[in-house]
Amino acid sequence: MSLILILEQVLNGLQAGVMLFLMAAGLTLIFGVMGLINLAHGSLYMVGAFAAAGVAAATGSFLLALVAALVAAAAAGVVVETVVMRRLYARDHLDQVLATFALILIFSELTRWAFGSFPLYLNPPDWLSGPVTLPGGIRYPVYRLALIGIGLAVGLGLWALTRRTRLGIRIRAGENDREMIAALGVDIGRLYTLVFALGAALAGLAGALVGAIQSVQVGMGEPVLILAFVVIVIGGIGSIRGAFVGALLVGLTDTLGGIFLPELFKLVTDPATATQAGASLSSMSIYILMSLVLIWRPTGLFGAKA
């Protein structure tokens, strides 16, 4: 096992992590501001990916495809928020789980009806395809490197948005005391729609970006959604910083565990058993990480005290 392989896997882990961050940031923002648990966030990811694949196939432009993903996911978010979510803010979590589970069923079936059950393919643009040689002689796909860059840029942008703008101040105030900021004349209903659309757009962007490495198909959002849940449980619900740290931890653990655990087991047992045990354990590794964090800090790394 060479150093280059290890570095490559670390980069893969980072790439998976920043994409998870795009999902987790939206989820944690929506929960933090509106107190809503949104299972249908994975459907918005899927909507973004399908919109991008459709537009890329029609126009051949990857940038247009990304714009389409953002617009379609944000629009779906606005529709869902105004028609359904708005009625759920005052309800308990059970109602929210059930209603958003129903939305997943509806979104998935409508997408299957519109696009069929076969996966679509979305290719990265020519100017981002092929490998690049990094210092140290590592050849790494440009596209995945670009994903890391985009993820970090979005993270920075979100930090600036919440910390440095008037909208960010309102969002943070909404997390703390919604009655008060409503009394101060902020249209809380519009703020909620805006936050929901922002979270949806981030999910749609992640769906389109990841759709170019994996296939675009119905049901692609839910595994990512569950990983994003693990991320925000680790990071602490409502904390964007926690979502960032948690996403990188989960991305790295998931990627590196799959490579190193079988190797680790080979030191103590025969190769066949080691591969099997390593595969089983690595599939569970992020959940073990989550349990450890929970034992240590029940409200996550950056969560507020319960």
Binding site: H93, V97, I226, F229, V233, I237, S283, M290, L294
Partner: peptide, 26 residues
């Protein structure tokens, strides 16, 4: 050890852990 929305997400995650374990248990 947690409650509310954490509980929902954590039980979901543990369920998924068993799912992945079963898929890799040849």
């Amino acid at each position: 050890r947690t409650a509310g929305v954490y509980f929902i997400m954590i039980t979901l995650a543990f369920g998924q852990m068993f799912f992945y374990f079963a898929t890799s248990w040849r």
